[in-house]
């Protein structure tokens, strides 16, 4: 265990754990847009930057992304130093100029006092903030169906060659974790369409309710050694089944006693 000072308060931390983890544990609110606990930090959005210093640094301060900076003993962290606040609002201003229509961005920017961007709004700017959460989750889950394509201002998230990705199983993790809800998908009539690929949902053999796609179930069954018939009922019908089994046993017990 080591000790670091965050906004004047001495707190304990594990050596090497990232500053953001410690800051969040202390219930201090700093914004992030590219952070997700399921994946490695990337340091793309730069919103979690904090001011750090040490007594031995002779008054010199550094500005680092807390999601990627390992805690060291004696570090003094200021999560809301004036320069940091200014940087955050400036970055949110840039985001707002690029994605003027995104409600999520507008709300976050407003929290930092940016109601309207001082920069030139990007005409027909989409809501993808290129945080890479979707691609990193897809990589971590082992599918690698989508990735960042291109660079700079024209970068986008897309499957290879912009065609229905063979590797995609339709787990929807990309869409569900998108901070700006940009990734579109369509679920109707027991089917799912995402990234231009069509999937069939598994319908519960009892009630017809759907949970995941057939491709995803097959993937889990093959790669994770889960019997495929587990996927053939929905959770509610599984519970009913369990209640029935336990009920029968309890009833035998009851009858045996009486």
């Amino acid at each position: 265990m080591i000790h670091i000072t965050i906004n004047g308060k001495v707190v304990q931390a594990k050596d090497g754990e990232m500053l953001l983890t410690v800051i969040r544990r202390e219930q201090i609110d700093i914004p992030t847009l590219c952070h997700h606990e399921a994946v490695e930090p990337s340091g793309a959005c730069r919103l979690c930057m904090v001011e750090i210093t040490k007594p031995s640094w002779d008054g010199w301060c550094d500005y680092v992304t807390s999601c990627l900076y390992p805690a060291e003993d004696g570090l003094i962290v200021n999560t809301h130093a004036p320069k940091v606040n200014e940087l955050r609002s400036s970055i949110l201003d840039m985001f707002l100029a690029r994605h003027p229509k995104s409600p999520e961005i507008r709300q976050l920017a407003a929290e930092y006092g940016v109601m309207k961007t001082q920069f030139e709004e990007v005409v027909d700017g989409d809501n993808c903030i290129l945080c890479g959460i979707c691609t990193r989750i897809c990589d971590t889950m082992g599918f690698k169906a989508i990735s960042m394509v291109g660079r700079g201002h024209g970068k986008e998230v897309a499957p290879p060659l912009n065609m229905a990705p063979a590797a995609c199983v339709g787990c929807l993790s990309c869409a569900k974790n998108c901070p700006t809800n940009y990734i579109e998908y369509n679920m109707k009539n027991g089917g799912l369409t995402i990234w231009k690929k069509d999937f069939e949902m598994i319908a519960c053999t009892e009630c017809g309710a759907t949970t995941i796609t057939k491709e995803f179930a097959e993937y889990l069954s093959v790669n994770r050694d889960i019997p495929f018939d587990y996927f053939e009922k929905c959770d509610a019908c599984h519970r009913k089944e369990l209640a029935g089994t336990m009920g029968r046993i309890a009833n035998w017990d009851r009858e045996a006693r009486s």
Binding site: N177, T211, I212, D235, H238
Partner: peptide, 23 residues
């Protein structure tokens, strides 16, 4: 289940043979 890490893919909901992971 660590909600910070969970990506809501529903795999566990579908996989549990007793239906005890619920959305």
């Amino acid at each position: 289940l660590n909600h910070e890490v969970c990506v809501n893919c529903m795999a566990c909901v579908a996989a549990c043979p007793f239906g005890c992971a619920i959305l």
